[in-house]
Design a binder for these strands. Structure first.
Lengths: 302, 302
DNA sequence: CCCTCAATTCCACTATATGAAAATTAATGA
DNA sequence: TCATTAATTTTCATATAGTGGAATTGAGGG
């Protein structure tokens, strides 16, 4: 792997800066030269100032350094998401083995969580019943982790989003609420902001329950109201059209759920219409199927 | 300012890790302890591995470290944007003085660009004619910079987006094209991806020309087609509803521009309708005004 | 109470980060 | 062609990053 210094040199030369100019006020010229030739490493403090001077963020620097590939966190969850969406249980198993290995080497709890998560996705794909008894305590451990971490970071948000579907309703209620509260200080940090959105959406979907229950009595009415208001707050910026469209769609589903069929259908139709107008046919079809499923069950029922 | 080590300690403790666990395989326990107590700095190489183990990105770490504030790059451009949108020429002048000072201290060209940019925004707000002669060469310098930087980073994209409005049409054509091409490798890097979107939108708006010219002959027909196709390519992911809506709106404006009034109006109405349905009244009004302006001019003309 | 584990401190030692000045290279121009 | 100058690399001295170990403190836990 290329050293960081070489990347820095590339960037500096791109910008037409001399060693002297970049080093000025930060470190000696000779040292910067050494670092760029990977004759020496650099301390965090100095490097921060170098990047500041270049008006560059660490993540962007690393992105360039890693040949324009995203960081490990995103790659990890994206790999899981891709494998799951493509029903590729081989890929999931592979990922699971990797994490298991890391766990055995380090004994760190986080890798155990990863193994659990991957196992669960695997069992969904393979349509195997989850070996509940065995995992029960692992799940509890995972939930405990979420309850104990005081400040959530992007990792916790993403992990929770990827596992909430396996947790009990009362846990989900508490944790999603916690997640929303903890996310507020990340308002300016786009990535966390976005995961929070998905968490809230998934929570609402979770609380609405399976489609074939849409005619029974309602369990989480108050809580749904609460989470709708969170999602509303998150979608305040007017350019967040995707969040707003999803909100519309979910509100429609909610109306359907509580029996206001005409209103609910109308709202979902609106959402479908918007997606269609914008040429997002995949999404439009997806919602349409969802709506049809509900209708089918309700017909059976009546 | 708090030292990095302290922040790391907070995070480590939050995650319930011991020094031993975090240091294992990376560095000695006693050293990590030293670093966390700011008794010592840490090298970039080691710190990268620490963050990797924590599944944390540099930017997120710095975000937490800086008390949940965005990085300097974004703060800088956001400050300018805010001041401009609020017609606050005092704030702009203040920013300008800051950059001027940096320029005098370092002699770096980039600060001169910043001064130029701020001066131009200032003159728009104060409705003063730009002192063209004086700035002509500065503008040329800025354009030269864009032409010479081989690999654009987030900074270059943002700077170009903020200044293109002051450049000549032929420069804008070339540079926007370049910008799009250079942005392709940043597909996975959200922030650059987003600025690219705005650059393309602004380019199209620039090429469409002022509203009161909407009845004259068309200059950049071919180029507009080109940029529409770029923006189309960028908006492929179906969740990019804002980009898609803007595209609809701009295509409508284009139709109006080339005389297809009914079709153009219909498209823009669609966009307005979507914003309205999604409760984005600000945006909806904004587009409505735009449409009315065009219509007013066309009526005068006929 | 003892026992254990996490963290700090101290020490001795090595590797290397960092700065100042000298040497080299490259480019430019008279 | 030879100065001249700027940019970079080398050299070398020193401060400090980083290791490993051992002794100490402190906080539970049984």
């Amino acid at each position: 792997m290329k050293a960081y210094g070489e990347t820095l040199r590339q960037i500096r030369e791109q910008k037409g800066l001399t060693l002297k100019e970049l080093a000025d006020g930060i470190c000696s010229i000779s040292f910067l030269s050494k670092f760029e030739r990977s004759d020496s490493d650099i301390t965090l403090r100095l490097f921060t100032r170098v990047l500041d001077k270049l008006m560059m963020s660490f993540d962007e620097f690393l992105f360039v350094h890693n040949e324009f590939k995203a960081g490990q966190l995103e790659r990890f969850f994206k790999a899981i998401g891709n494998a799951y969406n493509q029903n590729d249980s081989d890929a999931l198993r592979k990922l699971k083995e990797q994490e298991k290995k890391k766990w055995k080497q380090s004994g760190l709890e986080m890798y155990k969580h990863h193994v659990l998560m991957l196992q669960m996705y695997e069992s969904i794909i393979d349509n195997k019943a989850m070996v509940e008894e065995v995992h029960k305590e692992d799940i509890q451990r995972l939930a405990d982790y979420f309850f104990n971490v005081e400040v959530w970071g992007q990792y916790e948000f993403m992990l929770y989003n990827a596992t909430m579907l396996f947790l009990d309703a009362d846990m989900v209620l508490q944790l999603s609420r916690t997640a929303y509260e903890k996310s507020i200080r990340y308002e300016e940090f786009q990535k966390v902001n976005e995961v929070t959105g998905t968490i809230l959406m998934n929570t609402i979907i979770y609380l609405l329950g399976p489609v074939n229950k849409f005619t029974n009595e309602m369990k989480f009415q108050a809580e749904l109201g609460e989470f709708f208001s969170y999602l509303n707050a998150l979608s305040v910026p007017e350019h967040k059209l995707f969040e707003r469209a999803t909100l519309l769609q979910l509100k429609g589903a909610y109306k359907l759920r509580i029996g206001e069929s005409e209103l609910g259908t109308a709202m979902i139709q609106k959402a479908i219409h918007i997606y269609t107008e914008l040429g997002a046919v995949g999404q439009a079809n997806h919602i349409e199927n969802y709506l049809e499923q509900i209708m089918a069950y309700q017909e059976t029922d009546s």
